Simulated scan of single mutants.
Amino acid sequence: MPLGHCLLALFVTVIWGLSFVVIKIGVGATPPLLLAALRFAFAALPAVFFIPRPKTGWRYILGYGFFLGIVQFGLLFAAIALGMPASLASLIMQAQVFFTILFAALLMGERPSPYQIVGGIVAFLGLGLIAWPRLAGSEAVPFLMTVAASAAWGVANIVSKRAGRVDMLGFVVWASLIPPIPLLGLSLWLDGPAQVAAALSHLDLKALASVAYLAYPTTVFAFAVWAYLLSRYPAATVTPFALLVPVAGIAGASVILDEAMAPIEAVGGAVIILGLAINVFGPHLVQRPGPA
């Protein structure tokens, strides 16, 4: 992958890492599924009137909108509302790296290199170091919801690859049309019409700022760039960059939310970075110059 695309992938990981902090702030004032519905409604409108529909089948647009918007973010927002810390959520969601590589191998015949396998194992150990102490009692339910959300992200990555080389900005914008109504319906069912109406009538600056950040930098820009990279490079090359998302998530949660970062989390973060380095740079570090 060229350096420019590597830097673009890193920028996306920072945006996504900070988005977990924004979600935590947003669900404190707005029902989680309603917040998710507003996120995708703002991402789709009014952009869908100005951006042409991508030249790909409707099944890919519907599939991406379903797995990314309804399943992934419905579960994630609900898990964070149930008490999942933003820092831990940003870590657990990176299991999508392994889900994506697994699904790409099973469904698309992509085979990860030995360096990517070793890097994935190292990064998984880093995730395990951070997640293991928290897997107990009532924290298990939001944790499992977050793992399921990361699996849905892996499926969405495969759908975007199946869609081919299309206009990924248009792909993300048009796919954002799918989640709002189902998510709103789920919120009306689970939270009740009275709570949804009250939340909509009392949207404050904090809630609106959360929706704006989640709709535009996080959804329209970041997912369009991510889908663009996945359409041009193997999943095992692109997805390991997402292992830096928890680094930004932990840092942001520590500074903005005062979530304490334990020493084991710092060690786990360092192990994750090592795994990313092995995934991305391992083959280049051992290359030997050929004969003149």
Results as ranks from 00 to 15, higher is better:
159 V>A: 02
66 F>T: 15
126 G>N: 02
125 L>K: 00
277 A>K: 04
222 A>H: 01
216 Y>Q: 08
40 F>D: 09
285 L>C: 03
169 L>P: 02
189 W>I: 14
223 F>Y: 14
146 T>S: 11
12 V>P: 04
278 I>R: 00
3 L>R: 10
38 L>N: 07
126 G>R: 00
225 V>T: 12
247 V>E: 09
220 V>M: 07
164 G>W: 05
91 L>K: 03
194 A>P: 02
259 E>D: 09
41 A>Q: 07
247 V>L: 15
82 L>R: 09
103 F>W: 08
12 V>A: 03
24 K>L: 09
283 P>Q: 04
233 Y>E: 14
184 L>N: 07
166 V>N: 02
2 P>S: 15
158 I>L: 11
131 A>R: 04
99 F>P: 03
105 A>W: 14
163 A>Y: 00
33 L>D: 04
190 L>V: 13
56 T>M: 06
182 P>I: 06
4 G>V: 10
158 I>Y: 04
264 I>C: 00
252 G>L: 10
63 G>H: 12
273 I>H: 03
113 S>A: 15
269 G>K: 03
226 W>N: 15
96 Q>I: 00
167 D>V: 01
135 L>W: 00
103 F>I: 11
203 L>R: 09
136 A>Q: 14
249 G>E: 06
18 L>T: 12
148 A>H: 02
106 L>Q: 06
194 A>T: 11
263 P>Q: 10
144 L>Q: 01
224 A>R: 09
141 V>L: 15
228 Y>Q: 12
164 G>K: 07
234 P>K: 08
146 T>K: 02
14 V>F: 15
57 G>R: 15
103 F>L: 15
177 L>M: 10
125 L>G: 13
146 T>N: 05
240 P>Y: 08
128 G>I: 08
59 R>W: 13
91 L>A: 10
270 A>I: 06
21 V>N: 04
154 G>V: 05
7 L>R: 08
117 I>A: 08
241 F>W: 15
193 P>L: 06
202 H>S: 15
133 P>N: 06
177 L>H: 01
195 Q>H: 14
261 M>L: 14
209 A>G: 09
221 F>M: 08
217 P>N: 00
63 G>K: 11
126 G>L: 00
56 T>P: 09
220 V>P: 01
129 L>S: 07
142 P>A: 04
23 I>D: 02
7 L>E: 09
29 A>I: 13
198 A>N: 13
102 L>T: 11
95 A>E: 11
43 A>W: 02
124 F>K: 01
5 H>K: 14
176 S>I: 10
210 S>C: 05
73 F>C: 03
134 R>E: 13
182 P>Q: 10
214 L>K: 10
243 L>E: 11
27 V>L: 02
57 G>K: 15
223 F>D: 00
229 L>F: 07
260 A>Q: 14
267 V>T: 12
50 F>H: 05
125 L>M: 12
76 L>P: 03
89 A>L: 05
140 A>Y: 12
268 G>E: 06
280 V>G: 00
102 L>K: 02
237 T>I: 14
246 P>H: 02
276 L>A: 13
189 W>C: 14
260 A>V: 13
